[in-house]
Simulated assay, not measured.
Amino acid sequence: MEEGKKVQKKWYALYTKPRWEKKVTTVLERKGVEVWCPLQKIQKQWSDRKKIVEEPLFKSYVFVHILEGEKTNVLMTDGILNFVYYLGKPAIIRDEEVEVIQKYLSEKDASISIQSLGSLDENTRIKVNHGVFMDTTGTVVKGGKKKVYVKLESLEQVMIVEFPIDYLTPL
C-alpha cells in the first residue's frame, strides 16, 4: 500500500434473494458487518384490519459499509446473490447518498417510492433549494407537477420524492 493512502470503508449495495433483506441484515450484523437496510413504514390493508408495517425501501437490496478485503466474507452470507455492479465493478455508494436517504427517512411521514432508472426518460435537470434535499440536483420527469426524480446513479435507481414545485430551480 502506498504511503499516505488510508484504507477506508466504503458503502456497497448487495443484491439479495427476494424478500430476504431483513434476514440478510440480521446475519451480517451477527458477523459484525456494518449493514443498513433502509425501511419505511407502509400501511397495509387486509380484509379485516389495517396495519403499519416496515418494508425495505429498495426491494432485494441491502447496503454494507466495508473494507475492500471484506467483500468475500460478505458474499458468503446466505441470501446474498451478489454485489450490485456499475460499469463492471461493485457499485460504490457515496456517503452523501446514504446520508440523504437516512436523513429523509428519519423525518415524520417520510414517503419515498423507487423506480428503476431504465424505466425513465431524462428531461429537465433541477436543483432542490429547500428542505432535506437542499442543494441536491436531479432530473424532472414530466407527468406530475410535484414529483422530482433524484437519481442515485451508482445504484441505477431513482428516488421519487414529492414536494412543492417552488422548492425547485431549473439548471
Rank of each mutant, 00 (worst) to 15 (best):
D166K: 15
V33T: 03
W46Q: 07
V158G: 07
T124W: 06
L57H: 06
E97W: 00
D95G: 04
K50S: 12
T137H: 06
K17H: 07
G144F: 13
R94E: 00
I80G: 02
L87Y: 05
Y61Q: 05
Y167S: 15
V132K: 04
V150C: 03
F163C: 07
S116L: 09
I114A: 04
P38D: 04
V132D: 03
A13C: 11
V158P: 09
I160Y: 09
D95E: 15
V27E: 12
N129L: 13
E162V: 14
D48Y: 12
A91R: 03
T139M: 08
I42E: 15
Y12E: 04
S119R: 11
V74C: 03
I126L: 03
S47T: 06
L67T: 01
E68A: 09
G131Q: 07
K5G: 03
K31M: 14
T77V: 10
L152I: 00
L171Y: 15
K103W: 01
K17L: 10
K6A: 11
M76R: 12
N73H: 08
F83H: 05
S116P: 08
N123D: 10
K103P: 06
Y85C: 01
Y167L: 10
I112L: 14
M1R: 09
K147M: 09
V158M: 12
C37E: 06
E70K: 02
V150T: 05
F63D: 00
V74Q: 00
V84D: 02
G143F: 04
K50G: 03
E153T: 07
H130S: 13
Y167P: 06
S47P: 01
E34A: 07
K41M: 10
F58L: 02
Q115N: 09
K89D: 04
Y149P: 02
K71M: 02
S106C: 01
V62T: 15
P164Y: 12
V24I: 10
S154G: 02
F133I: 05
C37Y: 05
V140K: 14
T124E: 14
V132Y: 01
E153W: 00
K50E: 12
K146E: 10
A91V: 03
N82Y: 01
W36M: 01
N73K: 12
D48C: 09
T137W: 06
L155F: 00
K151R: 14
K6L: 13
L168N: 13
K89T: 03
K146L: 13
K89M: 01
Y12A: 02
V27I: 15
I42K: 14
P90T: 00
M1A: 10
E153I: 05
E68M: 08
T77M: 07
I114L: 03
K146C: 10
I165H: 14
Q157A: 01
K41S: 13
Y167V: 11
K103G: 04
